[in-house]
């Protein structure tokens, strides 16, 4: 069996890592809303309508 190489810090893209670190972090309220069933039922309807529009446009 090939011996496992020593674990090292992976060479991440510096600019991507910095960009991720600077990206907007959702607030706890936003995270709650993403899982809130009544709110998500409304979003479910809205997203479906939006998708239906795109689908119908593609089937013309």
């Amino acid at each position: 069996m090939t011996p496992k190489p020593e674990r090292t810090e992976p060479p991440m893209n510096k600019d991507t890592a910095e960009s991720i670190a600077a990206s907007p972090l959702p607030t706890s309220r936003t995270l709650r809303l993403r899982r809130n069933v009544p709110f998500q039922l409304l979003r479910f309807a809205a997203i479906n309508l939006r998708m239906l529009g795109v689908i119908l446009r593609g089937h013309k």
């Binding site: 993403r34 979003r43 479910f44 479906n48």
Partner: peptide, 9 residues
């Protein structure tokens, strides 16, 4: 959009 609704879809 990210959320539970997307999972349901």
């Amino acid at each position: 959009e990210i959320g539970l609704a997307g999972h349901w879809i």
